[in-house]
Structures are given as structure tokens and as C-alpha cells.
């Protein structure tokens, strides 16, 4: 168990140390999230909307960041080793595919937590935003974290074969799911009724609904939340295992040098 934890932490050590030394990566944590925050919140205040809409946007941005960082770090951890021509060393070591995935997801979660704290502080100062129900908020964030991890497992399945191309996919995936899941709006008000049952099958939809409910706008369904989050995680785990074995068999997992 201790050995497994050390191997998991190896990915956190690698990702956070390379973050510390790389200005562009640091900007992904320090600058872009702030620009994003100000752009959207300034726009909403310019429209003069009800504060509850402003709060939905703030919660949406927080939730989106969690999905984004978890998913992205899981893929970039592999893609960067491929760029550095060290990927074979990673897979030739005793670390398992799930230890690699969990470790890099943790480093993504650390980044997300940092942005979350900054967001909460800034939005409180600027707009008086406060989390009214921390229990529900944590439940929503936990759901979106698992959803981000699930998304990362799917993207990793692709990364075992496509490496750099998977990096682009991991950028796109959170945006697609956030859009479908009504990150900044009510899905009932926007999407046609025939599409809604499918959208509700996404764990991200359930997670954002929970977050929105903290400002009285979402319609969370706990049983669907557990079912979709657990179900998709299981599917992602199985797909990832299948993809790993297939890549290993076809010689696509990693090349020496």
C-alpha cells in the first residue's frame, strides 16, 4: 500500500515541479482562469442580470476548472513524457496505469483547488459571493472531480495510441461536456425536450445541477447523480484497461528512445 502511494505521489511530484519551473504552465493556473473569470462576470454585470445568474456563472467556472485540470493533467502527464522521449521509462517502471492516472489527477486537483480558493476570494470581494451550503457545494465539486477523472480515463485511452493528438482532445472534452451539461444556463430552458434524457445521463449534468442548487436554480437528482457518476467511471475504467492492453499488444504504448 505504501509503495503504491509513493508511486502515485511520483506523478504529483513530477507535475507540480514542472509547473513551478514553467511560466506557460503557471499562466494556466494563475492568469487564464482570472481572465476567464473577469471576462464572464464583467459581461454578466454589464447586462445587469439578477445576482443569481452571476452566481451560476461563478459556480460554473469553478466546476469547469475542476473538470479541466483533472482531465488535462492526466493526459499531459503522458503526452509530456512522450515529448521528452521518456515514456518508455514510465511504463517500464512498476507503476500501474491506474496509479499513473490517479497521481496525475491529484496534481490536477491541487491546481483546481488553488484556482477555487482564488475564485472564492475574488468573487466574494467583487460580488459578495459566498457558498451558502458547503455540504451541497462539496458534493457538487466531488461529483465534478470524479467526472473529470472519468473524462481523463477516456482521454488517456486515446492517449495510449495517439499521444500528442490526445492532448488536443483533452482541451476540447471539458468544453463539450460543460456546454452539454448547461454549465452557465438551465438545460431545461435551452435544449429540446427529446435531448434532455440523454443529457441527464452525463455525470457533469448532475454535478452542475447540484452546484446550481446552492443558489436555488438547479434540480439535483441524487440517485441519478450516484448512478451516472459511478456508471461512467466504471465504463471509463474498463475502456481504459482495454485500450492499455491493446496499445501494449500493438506496440503503441511507448517506444524506447
Amino acid at each position: 500500500m505504501n509503495d503504491s502511494i509513493t508511486r502515485i505521489l511520483s506523478q504529483v511530484y513530477k507535475n507540480l515541479n514542472s509547473l513551478r519551473r514553467n511560466t506557460f504552465r503557471m499562466a494556466d493556473v494563475l492568469i487564464w482562469p482570472m481572465i476567464f473569470l473577469f471576462t464572464l462576470t464583467f459581461f454578466i454585470t454589464y447586462l445587469g442580470s439578477d445576482t443569481s445568474y452571476l452566481y451560476v456563472v461563478i459556480l460554473g467556472m469553478i466546476g469547469w476548472r475542476v473538470i479541466y485540470f483533472l482531465n488535462l493533467d492526466m493526459v499531459s502527464s503522458i503526452a509530456e513524457e512522450n515529448w521528452a522521449k521518456t515514456l518508455a521509462y514510465l511504463f517500464a517502471s512498476p507503476i500501474s496505469r491506474m496509479e499513473t492516472a490517479v497521481g496525475s489527477a491529484i496534481s490536477g486537483f491541487v491546481k483546481a483547488c488553488f484556482v477555487l480558493v482564488v475564485y472564492l476570494l475574488l468573487t466574494n470581494l467583487l460580488y459578495g459571493f459566498v457558498v451558502k451550503d458547503w455540504g451541497v457545494f462539496v458534493l457538487g465539486m466531488a461529483t465534478l472531480s470524479v467526472a473529470g477523472f472519468t473524462m481523463g480515463l477516456f482521454a488517456l485511452s486515446f492517449a495510449y495510441f495517439a499521444k500528442e493528438e490526445a492532448f488536443s482532445i483533452s482541451f476540447i472534452l471539458p468544453d463539450v461536456f460543460a456546454l452539454l451539461s448547461g454549465v452557465y444556463f438551465s438545460i431545461d430552458a435551452v435544449y429540446p425536450s427529446w435531448l434532455l434524457p440523454f443529457i441527464r445521463l452525463l455525470p457533469t449534468t448532475q454535478g452542475f445541477e447540484v452546484l446550481k442548487s446552492t443558489v436555488g436554480l438547479g434540480h439535483p437528482d441524487l440517485s441519478m447523480l450516484v448512478l451516472t457518476t459511478g456508471g461512467w467511471l466504471l465504463v471509463a475504467y474498463l475502456v481504459n484497461g482495454w485500450a492499455y492492453d491493446k496499445a501494449r499488444k500493438e506496440g503503441k504504448l511507448a517506444r524506447l528512445g
Partner: peptide
Amino acid sequence: VVSGFSRSLISL
């Protein structure tokens, strides 16, 4: 394993 063609991790 050591490969003469491999490089090293970036930014570490």
C-alpha cells in the same frame, strides 16, 4: 533500462 535515444523530463 537505458536508451541512448531517450532524453530527459522537461522543466525538472
